[in-house]
């Protein structure tokens, strides 16, 4: 067992974890944050995507011990002040989700994308989320939702907000 400390969704957490435990299992099973999902065994699907020190990572490719000292943001920490984040609102309005299983990971990757590139082309959006699989929507409305947020310049990084508070 190794002792780790991390900031998850703005809150300090401390835990003893088995060295081989994957970060996604720590987040889901130990912290009870079931927003990030597991959809594959090979780091292809992106359902487990979270922000790790500000960058989108697939939490099934990391061990929980690697979270020691890191700042992690999951989908549960994205909306603030009782309001949906613009990406969450846009996913809803554009019907960019059906079963919702890929949605948390998809939104985390979109946050990463718009943080690095606030004005992406359609091709850049498609490439930006190409680490996240969706089996319901055929991606059409997901691309539309991300694009609508970019075009209306309402994107704010949820990390910045968390820091200001």
């Amino acid at each position: 067992m190794s002792r780790i400390q991390a900031i998850v969704n703005g809150r300090k957490v401390e835990a003893d974890v088995e060295p081989r435990k994957l970060l996604i299992d720590f987040i889901r099973e130990d912290l009870g944050l079931t927003g990030p999902h597991i959809g594959c065994d090979t780091s292809n699907c992106g359902a487990c995507t979270v922000l790790y020190n500000g960058r989108a990572i697939k939490s099934c490719t990391m061990f929980a011990v690697q979270a020691d000292g890191a700042e992690i943001l999951t989908i549960e920490g994205v909306s603030t002040d009782g309001k949906l984040h613009p990406l969450q609102q846009a996913f809803h309005e554009n019907h960019a989700l059906q079963c919702g299983y890929c949605t948390p990971g998809m939104i985390m990757s979109s946050i990463d994308l718009l943080t690095r590139n606030p004005n992406p082309t359609e091709e850049e959006i498609r490439l930006g989320i190409s680490g996240n699989l969706c089996r319901c929507t055929g991606y059409h409305n997901i691309v539309k939702a991300i694009s609508s947020v970019a075009k209306s310049h309402i994107f704010v990084s949820p990390l910045k907000k968390a820091k200001e508070e």
Partner: peptide
């Protein structure tokens, strides 16, 4: 349904 899904509050069997 969207509200619970976009906030990570969907309740799946797992």
């Amino acid at each position: 349904e969207d509200l619970r899904f976009v906030t990570g509050n969907g309740m799946y069997a797992s």
